[in-house]
Design a protein around this nucleic acid. Structure first.
Lengths: 151, 151
DNA sequence: CCCTTATATGATACACAGTGACAGGAAAGA
DNA sequence: TCTTTCCTGTCACTGTGTATCATATAAGGG
């Protein structure tokens, strides 16, 4: 579990020019379960998947509440939102920056271990007139299972 | 203009395990206009934006036709589909691999000139059990105009 | 421990981006 | 010009996520 019951999470860290969201004020039952469910390694569920799992513990939770909390938590920096236009968003309980790997066949997403990526300096970019605050890197390919199935 | 009228573009290049799309068979008026409109440097319109511009030359074109063609052309390799930047997909008339830059404030997307990116080894990744076919890299930050407006 | 109050929830309707189906239209080769 | 079959426009529809609002409840104070 990420946060002890009743403990307010840290306020959103200030970030250059980023409009800061409402942060968490209350640790509700639903929110606690949701955080607990998201706290697994190398798991990148869609909102729908989170919803189905959370319902085992909170059968009357609404999908809206799941979306609302996933949004709040990701904007607040507690979880990561993986956005790709045209597809379903995925969420990642791990808030520290890291890269992802996506199977082009089944759509599943995995973490890329830092040591698997080789570049000597962690990537330097300079574009005149632009203030760069970060980058997102997604690797694409085919997972072992999908490779097998297609042979 | 990318393709002379009446010239069929190259058939889709075969690619490991990728289901190949229907490729272009006919150079229709609508398709010609669309390709013409997309052929601008450093422009990354949404389907909606393309639609509005194409309609100046083909007022009765449907949004469905725009989507259909953007999809066919990108799968065929004539244009690039940008999925990682925001909620709406964007399209890029430039089919050669390159990176993009997105303003987190206005949502606009630009090309990153290759020489602006510095990494000593050209990015190497090895993940057991995974066949990597490519990667997508998106830089995020704030453009000059948005920086100014917020000061 | 109960009361108060603002935040969070559940229900529902809605918005948006993109897709599917299909009859009619028009490219391209004969 | 004719024929074939791919493509278009129309329109209904789906899936993902958002807005609204009455009700419920967490958290701090008395």
């Amino acid at each position: 579990m990420r946060l002890p019951i009743g403990v307010r999470p840290a306020r959103p860290k200030e970030y250059l020019f980023v409009k800061m969201p409402n942060s968490i004020q209350r640790m509700t039952r639903q929110r606690r379960i949701l955080l607990d469910v998201l706290d697994r390694k190398n798991w990148h569920p869609t909102a729908e998947e989170v919803y189905h799992i959370v319902r085992k513990q909170a059968p009357r939770i609404s999908l809206g509440t799941v979306y609302r909390n996933l949004d709040i938590l990701s904007r607040q920096g507690t979880i990561t939102k993986i956005e790709e236009a045209g597809t379903q968003r995925r969420y990642d309980g791990n808030p520290t920056p890291h890269y992802h790997l996506k199977c082009l066949d089944c759509g599943e997403v995995w973490d890329v271990p830092d040591e698997a990526v080789t570049w000597q300096r962690p990537l330097d970019v300079a574009i005149p007139g632009f203030t760069i605050t970060g980058h997102r890197l997604l690797f694409e390919g085919y997972c072992a299972r999908c490779m097998e199935e297609r042979q």
